[in-house]
């Protein structure tokens, strides 16, 4: 039990936040777009474990010069975490991600068979 507690308290001053996410269809992929402001790109971690796509990132440490004093703080040290379950529609081999302007976009390519096929109708 204590081992478990220890594991969980590794980052105990970080507030974990579920990033707001939009999910949409675009051409041949399903796109997840997650709002994650000020993320340290090194810490960005997108990984697939079975059917679960896990997204994790920590916020960049603020480099505020020493002479400054905090007057007011709403932004907290944040760890972003969210996971999604993928269905058979997604091609596991083709997952791409990009981070820009505080938004992470994950492109999940649809598997061949999930793409609508045009069926020619013979008259």
């Amino acid at each position: 039990m204590f081992d478990k507690l220890k594991l969980n308290s590794k980052n105990d001053n970080a507030v974990v936040v579920l990033p707001n996410t939009n999910i949409y269809d675009q051409d041949k992929s399903i796109v997840l777009s997650l709002e994650m402001a000020g993320v340290d790109k090194e810490s960005l971690d997108v990984n697939l474990e079975g059917n679960i796509l896990r997204i994790k990132a920590t916020k960049k440490k603020e480099d505020i010069p020493r002479e400054y004093q905090a007057l007011y703080q709403e932004r907290q040290v944040v760890e972003y975490k969210r996971s999604f379950e993928l269905n058979a529609e997604v091609d596991r081999e083709k997952i791409e991600a990009e981070y820009k302007d505080g938004v992470l976009k994950v492109f999940l390519c649809k598997a061949e068979k999930a793409q609508p096929k045009k069926i020619a109708i013979k008259v």
């Binding site: 402001a37 505020i64 703080q73 938004v103």
Partner: peptide
């Protein structure tokens, strides 16, 4: 947006989280 305000002798430093904007 959430903001932080810091103060030094000469400056104020304001930070705001504004994801997904240009």
């Amino acid at each position: 947006p959430s903001i932080d305000i810091h103060e030094s002798k000469d400056n104020l430093l304001v930070k705001a989280d504004l994801p997904g904007l240009t």
